[in-house]
Design a binder for these strands. Structure first.
Lengths: 200, 200
DNA sequence: CGGAACCGATTGACTGGTCAATCAGTGAGG
DNA sequence: CCTCACTGATTGACCAGTCAATCGGTTCCG
């Protein structure tokens, strides 16, 4: 096997291990040696592929968040009612959690909800998501689908906040997470928010 | 001035200083010496009044959160429509932020949204707030005021999540915080959530 | 085709700096 | 003279990041 071919494997291995360890212990409490051990790799190799412990988390966030931004964009392009577009967004996020709870836990707990420490760096990208959602709301208002007395950005924050709180509830076992609750969650979320936004 | 009389002052001084420093730098990034300096007090005195740096944050959280729990309880006892009760809860939280943004920033950023690190200890108290709100929703459903196809705990999470996200938006200047936005926020929040919960 | 030079991947011991927490001491009130 | 709020230098643990050394493969020259 060529040396070049082995490299990306190890890098991936480190990232995947980092997700597990960060999810288990939290970013701050994990030592770089924990990541290396979990990945079955030497300590120094982490620094061969990443400039710092922060950069590992960075990479994980950026990988995932860009998918989210793309998904929101796509949901908007896809057409349909604006309620359906919001449903697609909620569906993507809930689906992300369902598919890889550990990664989503890390993203939410260590970045999205850690705006004071690590998340500060990524505020612009996070904000972009809020704004993309707000755009859907604004278009929905223009189309007469949503009431006009709620600022789009405000509605966007409420919508995203409700989703994230729900995921947090699952993550910390404040509310039970079953397959059916995953199924229902998206619709319930959209119903809760949209019927509050809909013209009376 | 008697030594005994001075004691509570210094303790308060330390707590107040801690709020400012935690809000400015975040809990993790503040050294105990920062708190002491900000309070104009010797390093060791912090350890005279508190067992650890954690306990300082603990105290701040408990002081504030017990007020929140009491406020929810009171809003529920006060009677009126259940929509009004939720409005009282939202009003209390928004008011808390308006009255002391730094303290609320610390509570939210370092405890409530840090369930993986520090907040873990307080999960039970945090959960109690969700459950108290859920009780209001459940009673509202029983009274025919709210739709029944949304689990009370689910609605509670969405409601609280929307509020917290809004505060986070203000805290991190993702959305502008003006006096009028504080005024409007409570009503907008309640409108957004309740009209989604109301019987069609 | 042998082997020498090269180069990126990989290793893990070590270091430097950072702080939380301790503790021996000071001085004022009662 | 005893207690207790108060002081701040010291200590001990911890850990991110460095670095010198090794490994193994590819390339290219003779």
């Amino acid at each position: 096997m060529a040396a070049k071919a082995a490299a990306p494997d190890k890098r991936r291995q480190i990232l995947d291990a980092a997700v597990r360890v960060f999810a288990r212990q939290g970013f701050h409490a994990t030592r770089v040696s924990d990541i290396a051990d979990e990945a079955g790799v030497a300590y120094g190799l982490v620094y061969h592929y990443f400039r710092s412990k922060d950069e590992v988390l960075n990479e994980l966030f950026i990988e995932r968040w860009s998918l989210l931004l793309a998904a929101i964009e796509e949901a908007d392009q896809a057409g349909g009612t604006h309620r359906e577009r919001l449903a697609a967004v909620a569906g993507f996020i809930v689906g992300s959690y369902r598919h890889d709870p550990e990664l989503m836990k890390v993203i939410i707990v260590e970045v999205t909800r850690a705006a004071n420490s690590f998340g500060r760096t990524h505020l612009p990208e996070i904000r972009r998501a809020y704004e993309s959602i707000a755009k859907i709301v604004a278009d929905g208002q223009a189309a007469g689908e949503f009431r006009r007395d709620v600022t789009p950005l405000f509605a966007s924050m409420a919508f995203y906040g409700a989703i994230e709180q729900l995921l947090s509830g699952w993550i910390f076992e404040v509310i039970p997470a079953s397959d059916t609750s995953f199924e229902d969650a998206k619709d319930l979320l959209v119903t809760t928010i949209c019927d509050g936004l809909g013209p009376r």
